[in-house]
């Protein structure tokens, strides 16, 4: 079962199990992880599921779509060119069986 670790302010992290085919935003919302909103329901339209992916997992991420690219320019917390992604676009399973992310201070 895929696993996501959410870190808040550099804490030790909250581990959440997710269904294969789910994504980082869904895993957060379904498990009540603070700081991930997902206002548009996972459609890459609102940038409220912004996360910073930790270095060891960057190589396993799917490419950034044009929609996501534009949304990432408009996140509430500063964009990190390498680590910023929308959680709703990070589908779990396959290459991304496990991922660790830092949750930004703000989504709105």
């Amino acid at each position: 079962m895929p696993k996501v670790v959410f870190h808040h302010s550099g804490d030790a992290g909250t581990v959440v199990d997710a269904d294969p085919g789910s994504n980082v935003m869904r895993a957060a919302v379904q498990n009540g992880v603070a700081g991930i909103v997902g206002e548009c329901g996972g459609q890459a339209m609102c940038a409220t599921c912004h996360v910073y992916v930790r270095e060891p997992y960057l190589g396993a991420l799917p490419p950034v779509s044009e929609d996501e690219e534009e949304m990432l320019d408009c996140t509430a917390a500063p964009r990190d060119d390498r680590r910023s992604r929308l959680g709703c676009q990070l589908t779990l399973g396959g290459d991304l069986e496990e991922v660790e992310v830092d949750v930004p201070e703000a989504q709105l």
């Binding site: 269904d19 085919g21 789910s22 869904r26 919302v29 379904q30 498990n31 009540g32 997902g38 329901g41 996972g42």
Partner: peptide, 16 residues
């Protein structure tokens, strides 16, 4: 699409 519809918040969010 086989995924269940996404809740706005997890159930425990409301109690918390």
């Amino acid at each position: 699409d086989a995924a269940p519809v996404l809740p706005l918040r997890a159930e425990r969010y409301f109690a918390e």
